[in-house]
Structures are given as structure tokens and as C-alpha cells.
Amino acid sequence: MKVRREEKGQSTLVFEEMEPFFVEMLRHLPGDSDPGDSAAARKRLYSDPIGPAEDGDDFKEDWQEFVQPEIRDLFRSAREMVVEDLAGLPKAAGTELRREKDTILFDPAAFAPGAFLFKIPMRHAEAWLSVLNQARLVLAARRGFDEAAMDEEWPFPPFSERDLDLFKVHFFDLIQQIFLREMGYE
């Protein structure tokens, strides 16, 4: 995967020669960023606003009623923007997940540089940073990843479901780092 900046008309981040597997992982991003019915993931994305030492039950209730819906709306609109961008991603044949018992298999060719080109307008960078971070937090909360898990090597296929999620936590960080660099926050 190669990354470059294009400044024709609007500033765009261009991903070239993307490996089909990475294309497939990007497709998972919107779903992975949604906490769904996972209590752990919801608790992480919508955390308490006040320390445990404070007597803040009323405040917490107000926060849940008035502030969290706004935050939820912001997360949703960021996700919608990312979904819109991902619609421009070509379908990567042969990268669909194949499961055999508890193992996820991939065609080795999915890891070879491919012909995929993907463009993201830099004006969408905020939305991407948000959704990438949401996905990392949701995946980690669902799996209970801690500091030790984050220190593990990048897993490679064949994957267990857990390994796939850990891989995505690292891969989404890689994309986040590209955005941070391009935004001048290295």
C-alpha cells in the first residue's frame, strides 16, 4: 500500500496498490465502530462525565439525557461520511472471510500489493479519525484487550476471531497515523 497526497481541486489522500486484504479490512470499519448491544463497548464510548468521589447522580442523568445523544449524533454523522467514502472502494474479489471451524482463512494473494486505488478527501479527515478511533475502542472493549494485548505482535493469518480483531485494532491505528501525519500531528 502506498499513500500520497493529491492537491487537484481539493486536497485528497490517495491510497494506491492496496492489498486486497486491507481493502476488506477497511470495509469492516463502519460495522466495527458500532457498539451495538455490547455493554462494554457502549460504556467505553459513552463514559461517565464525573469522578466516583463526586455526588453526581443527577448530573449523570442529565448528561445521559442531553449530552450523550449529541455525542451519539456526531459519531453517527462521522460514520455516515466514512460509509460514503467507502462506497468508492472497488470490490475486492477473493477477500471475503472464509471460516473453517474457529479459524478465518484468506487467500495468500490477498496480501500481495493490488491494483486498488482509494481516495479520501482531506476535508473528511476528522470523520475518519473519529470512526477509526471508535472502531479501535469498540473492538478492544468487546474483546477485553488490555495493555498486554496491545503489546502483542501483529497477528497474521490464519486468524482466530480474536486475532482478526486485534489485527484490525492495529491496522486502524496505522490508518489513523497516516491521517495524523497528513494533518501535521506526528
Partner: peptide, 19 residues
């Protein structure tokens, strides 16, 4: 402080306020 905690939550940081 409430405003800042809200902003930090928008960016998904674990932030609280306390006296």
C-alpha cells in the same frame, strides 16, 4: 469544565470532572 469534558468525550477520551 463540563464543556471541556464533553469535547474530550466527543474525541473518545476518558475524561471526568471533579472538585
Amino acid at each position: 469544565a463540563e464543556f471541556y469534558v464533553q469535547q474530550l468525550h466527543v474525541h473518545q477520551l476518558l475524561a471526568t470532572m471533579e472538585r
